[in-house]
Design a protein around this nucleic acid. Structure first.
Lengths: 246, 246
DNA sequence: GCAAAAGTGTTGGAAATACACCCATGT
DNA sequence: ACATGGGTGTATTTCCAACACTTTTGC
């Protein structure tokens, strides 16, 4: 109680100067950002990982992360990591949770803010093969370095929940897509099978898909129609809805 | 790209030693925890706030927060703040979001992890009146110090969402409560009116309320039955459910 | 006896689910 | 011709919303 009581007064009796001094003394904590980068390819949900070089975690896979610069916004750090690793700007990014156990990193006290992002794999096929970066089927990810398994699990669960409430999934698809691709995406993310007719009914009823009057090409079966998601229409409509679904 | 590229290699080519050095150099970021402490009293959802003493925010209200100690887990810091301010242990606590804009705190770079907690107001009436602590109706909270208004809004929204998916609300009530109190609670949190019969039907159908065969006392009308929430039963049942609701 | 809230069932509409057949294309 | 997935409609069930009267207690 003695030490903590003193510190607890930060909002009450301490002056700005005292706080400034305290900040300079106490900040023995480093801050990092870790990104769970999701992609969708071969009808599987994938995550982009890198090999850890630390001996302690030799050979294990790790998330993409970096320390936050002192003059850098948190979100900016996450965007920076994504830009570096994938070459992409304009990605969907969402903060999920902050992991702050004292002993989570062998290099000292590092608190890490976890983000997940959704990218369209088609758009960056080139920048990837360097380094030790690889796409992994999310179903086969296990035993990661640091506490990254826990971070990954948390982010995947968050994605599974959010994708049922908001139209995030389209960030993983090309601009034009067939309903089959869309359904495959949801099935991959949620790891379930869905009824095709009900799936179509549901999305058409939402009325956010625009039929662009094009067909799939080069498929070995009857080609499906292509659609795009109308984000503007969604933004206008969603304000009217109170509770549930999109 | 030059500086950031270098830093981005933390998981690839850097050794542990390099990282350790880097951590010691870069950690000019202080880490704090801010708690949005909710209570339920007089049929209103309340939040516990303190007056800011900084001149810049003179007279404005602020959340309860403190810097995180270098050897302290993040959650432990939040529990510490709660214990100090309310005298309570065993409170419901949930991390919500981390706020990391460079300029959010006048004392320097302070990144803050926001938590909300739910406490039973009955249990700590005594410890409160010291300091400049006060309970505020959430509906009248505005224009707070720092970026605390944004933090508060985010936490309240999170509570509104979570309370519809999980049985959190009971943490705000006494162990024994009437259905009317429970409904008042939900109406206060969600800021809506509900149909009394449908509300009862819903909760009885869930089958997590135990009728303890007691009645309300000292009420100026027909007394209602008292119930308690069966957390054990909930824990066992929830694993069987896949999707939605509790 | 009256004010105030407790307690209780039914009905109709909306949404979700389950389910089967024909069609268009490539090979 | 056949294999593959595209495209479509209906019946059933489940869930949610709306709604009114009688009962019990304190005053």
């Amino acid at each position: 109680m003695p030490k903590s009581n003193q510190a607890s007064q930060s909002n009450t009796v301490k002056t700005l100067q005292v706080i400034q001094t305290e900040v300079q003394n106490i900040n023995k904590i480093a801050l990092s950002v870790d990104c769970v980068i999701f992609g969708f390819d071969e009808n599987k949900l994938k995550v982009l990982l890198i090999r850890s070089d630390l001996k302690k975690y030799h050979g294990k896979w790790s998330l993409l992360g970096d320390l936050v610069f002192p003059n850098e916004d948190l979100d900016a750090a996450a965007y920076r990591i994504l830009k570096q690793r994938t070459g992409l700007s304009d990605v969907y990014l969402e903060q999920v949770h902050t992991f702050g156990k004292v002993s989570r990193h062998p290099a000292g006290r590092v608190v890490s803010v976890a983000y997940y992002s959704l990218i369209n794999v088609q758009h960056h096929k080139l920048n990837i093969l360097e380094n030790e970066l690889h796409w992994h089927d999310v179903k086969s990810v296990n035993d990661m370095a640091f506490d990254h398994q826990q971070i990954f699990d948390t982010c995947l669960q968050q994605l599974q929940k959010r994708v049922q409430e908001h139209p995030l999934g389209f960030n993983l698809l090309p601009k034009k897509f067939s309903l089959r691709e869309l359904q495959n995406l949801y099935e991959a993310i949620l790891d379930i099978k869905m009824d095709r007719r009900n799936f179509r009914k549901k999305f058409f009823a939402m009325d956010f898909l625009t039929d662009i009057n094009e067909m799939e090409q080069d498929v070995a079966h009857r080609p499906g129609r292509l659609y795009k998601f109308d984000f503007d229409k969604y933004e206008k409509k969603k304000k009217k809805m109170i509770g549930i679904d999109f």
